[in-house]
Simulated scan of single mutants.
Amino acid sequence: MLQLRPNCECCNTDLPPAALNARICSFECTFCADCADAKLQGACPNCGGELVRRPVRPSAKLANNPPSVERVLQPHGCAPRVVEPGALA
């Protein structure tokens, strides 16, 4: 089940469960659309994976399946992931 993390890892913008501007990778690293698009060019800076819109959990399901309250904030900010030539992504 998705954790539905509450904030952007880059700029700390709040991303409530119904946020349509939340983006995640396959490891659930979470970013706002502004950071994902403008700063990260659609790639997760942690794993290099694609950032896609996070699905919205129906509000009726939130009581029994609550979102995460743990905020994750990267100390390095929104630096795009750099892969050295010849290195595995």
Rank of each mutant, 00 (worst) to 15 (best):
N65Q: 11
T13F: 01
L15V: 05
V69C: 06
N12Y: 11
L73N: 07
N12L: 12
V83L: 13
Q74R: 15
V82F: 14
C35G: 07
L88N: 13
G48H: 04
N65A: 08
L40Q: 05
A43T: 14
C78G: 15
T13M: 14
T13D: 13
Q74W: 13
D34I: 06
E84H: 04
P58T: 04
G48N: 06
A60Y: 07
V72G: 00
D14F: 02
V72W: 03
P6Y: 08
P66C: 01
L73I: 15
P58I: 01
R54E: 03
P58R: 09
M1T: 08
C35M: 07
I24T: 08
S68Q: 10
P16D: 14
N12H: 12
L4Y: 15
R53F: 09
P6K: 06
V83G: 00
K61T: 04
D14C: 03
L20M: 10
V83S: 10
T30N: 07
R81F: 09
N7P: 05
D37K: 08
P55C: 05
E28V: 06
C29R: 04
V83E: 10
L15H: 06
L62K: 00
N21T: 10
R5N: 13
P45I: 01
Q3V: 05
V69H: 10
I24F: 01
K39E: 15
L88C: 05
C47N: 08
G49M: 03
L4R: 10
L62P: 01
V56L: 12
